[in-house]
Design a protein around this nucleic acid. Structure first.
Lengths: 190, 190, 190, 190
DNA sequence: AATGAATGAGCTTTCATTCAT
DNA sequence: GATGAATGAAAGCTCATTCAT
């Protein structure tokens, strides 16, 4: 009988090590040790290290989506909804620095590029963010730019400031978060 | 005797391989082969692989600075100067995809974080970009945000769109570059 | 309680996998899966992988003996009986390529050497082939050579041509089989 | 500067270990240790374990060919030449049991099958043995059988008796060797 | 100054066997 | 009796760095 808590432990260990030391600083033996299992055990739950990494990301992506949509003001105007998502994103990453560092490693790697390609051109359901921008474009309240450019202008800076916060280059308090998210909107609004 | 052209060849080879395959896809033996020197020779010019990578970055940073300041409209208002630098940056990265990929690898790694820390808190001369923002802050034409946040709101998205162009998610033509750089300014302007 | 049909399934699965991929391409987990049992279950029927392999061979040896002695012309002269056995052996191996490949794997391994040693020097009943050669030696119709040499001169080539047939180096039809078996006899006859 | 004696040592170590324990009983670490080099060093001389094995075989094949053609009676009739080669082959294998066991391992493996396929259907120069049989076929002094069958009837048994000698099932002295080689010829002669 | 052969710790993954359920 | 999750030693191979030449 597969024990889900063992799978969880492995994912947690992998996330921690990758967040701290990158993919190459997270050998399977160390992941196993930190998860409290034998090295071979990992391969009962994951096909390969690649698979473990992708699954770790998938798990995290679900958590982040949940954080973004908590108290989501679905009936409010687009701008309020954007501000909500942006704020929640930054708050989540600040509250979960380990998760943030993992996501950084993930997106700054071939895994991330493949994942974004799939999001943009694959047949999966559009993300909440894409839908938000498409609605804004229809309402002609933001500049008519390609989706990737809109993302770069908005969520790009948000991730960047989270990184700078993690590196202690800045301190993101509630006020600065609000200002920054608002500034992102100013960049794309018409 | 140290021959500068040999040093150059090693840096060129390292940049190519790192841009193409990442740090871990650029073994010293391959760098040596591509540079036309013996593996041991690299260590006469550079202390270690780390050192080689940092020197490679330093060389590239000089080139990029030169590109940004070409035809620099030093007497124009801050906004025009920002638009100039932003446009030049994107154009340089699009025209030099190899150099761009190297910089991506560099900044998405502990090297990049250390480098940025040094820029922010070290005693070196301030970069042209920092000086530009400080001037704009004095003139009260941009939002009073910390320097890292201003960078995140402006150059962050520019690098992001260059990456998306390199990945062929978008096609950056002259018009789109101009629009994007302008949007970055809109994000920070008062 | 031991269920013989489960034992059979395990042996069948082991034979298939070993024939296809060799001993090292037949992990116990795969044998178990193909046999429709759990990995641990195999160890209730067999002490070890070694034991399973030996038992698989023993089972097969029985089948082969049955094939060789089908329509056995017990009252005919030695030569006719040899030709019968030789022809049956080749026909069996050609009709049962999987069984042949297993036997090849088995005999070209320490298992095979041990098995032959037991046959030659053990206390078990003599094989039909040994008895045939001893009768021929008594009748002084074959060269007075040690039993292993006689086997090498007769069944050795037969196995070799079966292998070449399996590898598609040659095509063994009825005529060629007859010629080859006859040639083997020519090698040992006086 | 590549040192040929180091290459030789590695090949010797590999041959010894493979002869004694088979391919799977010859891990690269052990080969390295026995050769007196570091594990990584082997990969300066050979691309992979596969490559090392093939090169070991190639080296040995050259030696065997030299042994077979020593004092070759090129002007004598085909039969005498066959008897010469057969005798030399057995003598070589008896005098070099380690080399013999390596060749056994090699031919009873996918390496051997590939090698024989290449010999039979490749464009390389025909071996001395193939040339001998073709000459005999032209002179109509042996049975008109396919080349692989002729080999199976002659060199097959010779290898088999060498194996039985190595296993101490028989003792091959000069007389028995001569008898056995002659018997092989009897099998194919017309 | 330059070479490049040598090092050996380190990597991901496999698999025969055990044992708690 | 049967299960299958867990084990952990071992495999082939890589590569930053050293040092005798």
């Amino acid at each position: 009988m597969i024990k889900p808590e063992k799978r969880d432990e492995i994912i947690r260990a992998a996330m921690e090590l990758i967040a701290e030391h990158g993919f190459h600083g997270a050998p399977m033996a160390l992941v196993a040790e930190r998860a409290g299992v034998a090295a071979g055990t990992i391969y009962r739950y994951f096909e390969s290290k690649d698979d473990l990494i992708r699954e770790t990301h998938a798990r995290l992506e679900g958590q982040i989506l949940a954080a973004l949509t908590e108290d989501y003001p679905a009936t409010q105007p687009v701008r309020e909804r954007f501000l909500h998502i942006g704020r929640k994103l930054v708050e989540y990453f600040i509250a979960s620095p380990m998760e943030f560092r993992f996501m950084e490693q993930f997106f700054n790697s071939p895994y991330g590029a493949a994942h974004r390609r799939e999001k943009l051109f694959g047949n999966k359901e559009k993300s909440i963010i894409f839908k938000l921008f498409e609605e804004a474009l229809e309402q002609q309240i933001i500049k008519p730019l390609p989706l990737p450019v809109l993302c770069a202008l908005t969520f790009g800076p948000l991730v960047d400031v989270c990184r700078d916060h993690a590196l202690e280059f800045i301190v993101l308090d509630e006020a600065l978060i609000a200002q920054t998210v608002a500034a992102c909107w100013d960049g794309v609004k018409l």
